[in-house]
């Protein structure tokens, strides 16, 4: 499986289209979003906005297209299954492809932050640096969770576009929608959701409280998404 993942990553990294959106983000970042920043807090506040409303899409779309759309189009899964590879292995390896590529994207985003700070000659304290890293990590994890959920729809519909639309909708509305329901109906939907647990884990870590329990809940959500994907894929009729 490791070899399959490595082969996939190598294939994706050879794709020029994979770099277009991150390059666009780089341009937007240096010319618009962080223009006029002066101190760490300004950069940090801007980053919250960037990660939530811009970077999330820029990471999600190329990763999803590279991992799922290209594979479906090329018949790669059919070849792997026809050669005796188990469907479970394929689901896990595609998810891990997505994790690696998403982490790759967020490392790039963090590099952009460091470039911005260097540009404005901001030297963060160790504590500020930790906050910046945690912010990046939490959004990276949210994107991975969205991808895990959205991939179920790829296996159901056999269409990467449907999965990608689900992911984009989740990025755009999950927090807002769950927050609204929580406020209106007084049901802690957001708190117990995957997103709520990610926020809880990072908040607890920063406050020196127990972050293990919410982290386990996040892992449980992701494992559940993978198991559902496997179950759906196992029943899927594939075309030659």
């Amino acid at each position: 499986m490791i070899r399959l993942i490595w082969t996939d990553i190598r294939r994706v990294l050879l794709k020029t289209g994979f770099y277009i959106l991150p390059a666009l983000l780089f341009l937007i970042t240096v010319t618009v979003l962080k223009k006029g920043n002066r101190g760490f807090e300004d950069i940090y506040t801007d980053n919250q906005f960037t990660y939530r409303f811009v970077a999330a899409y820029i990471a999600a779309i190329p990763v999803f297209m590279a991992v799922y759309a290209d594979e479906l189009k090329s018949g790669a899964w059919v070849v792997a299954i026809g050669r005796g590879m188990s469907r479970r292995k394929i689901v896990v390896s595609k998810f891990l492809d997505g994790v690696i590529l998403t982490v790759f994207m967020y490392v790039f985003f963090f590099a952009l932050d460091l470039i911005t700070m260097a540009y404005y000659m901001v030297t963060p304290t160790p504590l500020q640096m930790e906050r910046a890293i945690l912010l990046n990590l939490s959004y990276c994890l949210k994107n991975i969770s969205y991808m895990g959920f959205a991939s179920i729809f790829v296996y159901i519909t056999w269409s990467a576009s449907v999965g990608m639309i689900v992911e984009v909708i989740m990025i755009s509305f999950t927090e807002m929608a769950l927050g609204w329901v929580q406020d209106q109906l007084r049901i802690p939907l957001l708190d117990i959701s995957m997103i709520g647990q990610i926020d809880q884990a990072f908040a607890n870590y920063a406050a020196g409280k127990n972050w293990i329990v919410p982290a386990i809940a996040v892992i449980a959500y992701i494992v559940a998404f993978i198991l559902i994907s496997m179950e759906v894929f196992n029943r899927k009729e594939l075309e030659l």
Binding site: R3, T7, G82, R83
Partner: peptide
């Protein structure tokens, strides 16, 4: 088996086969 004319069209023929060789 032959799955039709399906491939990663941003790769060369050789890179496509390199990928599928690894899958196999």
């Amino acid at each position: 088996f032959f799955v039709g004319a399906k491939y990663f069209n941003y790769l060369s023929a050789r890179d496509n086969l390199k990928y599928f060789a690894s899958v196999k």
